[in-house]
Design a protein around this nucleic acid. Structure first.
Length: 275
DNA sequence: CTCCAGGTGATGG
DNA sequence: CCATCACATGGA
């Protein structure tokens, strides 16, 4: 790595688990072991270099300005895990232990919104493939510091200018119409994603659900992964299964506040491995 | 072949 | 309010 910055970090940070956690779809591991993170129009390479040691291929100033918050480095996940008592919540405790290292990324809202519109009723590998195709065809081509070309996530205007057939050709299926209308609503100012960030959780959820193709699940994913509302609790098929098996008498969401989204993410990964 | 995948909108009661 | 159903697509 030409320019780089190395740092120590003692709290949970498992790049592989984050890449596979199903909250982001453009983070991949390369042959040399480093991860390439594509986020919005930016790219970063990050690798683990030792016990609690990491290095990134950007200057310290860029790391602190752009990426520290992306990886939620200000939050203490060990402390969040330690709130769970193994006697009260044995399965959730086991999930936290087994999936230690996951963090909730703070992703770009637009990218998160489109990604989770695409995600509905599909498997994670297919979601990745569609997003990859979308970015490759319609996102701005950029060059990283090694001269390698990558593609930014398409902006609202870039998607708004497409035809529905163009989206269908990315294998989006019936979600194409959702994505197109939402892109036009954002590009033409009927929806203001920036302004939404000021809303409290309940109002934000209602506002997001007014978007075409956005129901409770997608709205809560946008809140959790794009607007960093750590108490948002999206319920997909895996979480539904986990709740039924591990909490047959009812899920204790009130007790798990204000970190329902974090525990949900441990359970999601754990359920996929065990159920 | 059927069933499932980080679901939602439309419709009908 | 709730219960169905159609919706594209690919993998198991």
């Amino acid at each position: 790595m030409r320019e780089s910055f190395a740092f120590s970090f003692a709290d949970d940070l498992d790049l592989m688990r984050i890449a596979q956690s199903g909250q982001c779809f453009r983070m991949t591991q390369h042959a040399d072991g480093a991860f390439r993170v594509l986020a919005g129009e930016d790219v970063l390479r990050i690798r683990k270099t030792g016990e609690n040691r990491f290095s990134v291929d950007c200057a310290q100033a860029q790391w602190e300005k752009r990426w520290k918050s992306y990886f939620d480095m200000g939050e203490n996940y060990a402390r969040i895990r330690e709130r769970i008592d193994p006697k009260t919540d044995p399965d959730l405790f086991a999930a936290c232990e087994a999936q230690k290292g996951i963090r909730i990324l703070h992703q770009d809202v637009w990218e998160t919104l489109v990604s989770f519109l695409i995600s509905q009723n599909r498997s994670i590998p297919l979601i990745r493939k569609s997003i990859e195709t979308l970015c490759h065809r319609y996102g701005t081509a950029c060059e990283d510091r090694y001269g390698e070309v990558y593609h930014a996530f398409p902006t609202p205007a870039q998607i708004a200018a497409l035809s529905e057939d163009a989206l269908l050709s990315c294998k989006m299926g019936y979600r194409s119409a959702y994505i197109l209308r939402t892109a036009r609503d954002v590009a033409e100012g009927r929806v203001d994603l920036l302004q939404m960030q000021a809303l409290p959780d309940a109002a934000l959820l209602e506002r997001l659900k007014t978007l075409y193709g956005v129901g409770p699940k997608v709205a809560l994913c946008v809140m959790l992964f794009g607007l960093h509302r750590l108490n948002a609790l999206p319920v997909d098929t895996w979480i539904r299964k986990a709740m039924a098996v591990y909490y047959p008498k009812g899920y204790p969401a009130e007790r798990l506040a204000p970190f329902n989204g974090v525990y949900q993410q441990y359970l999601f990964a754990y359920a996929r491995d065990h159920l």
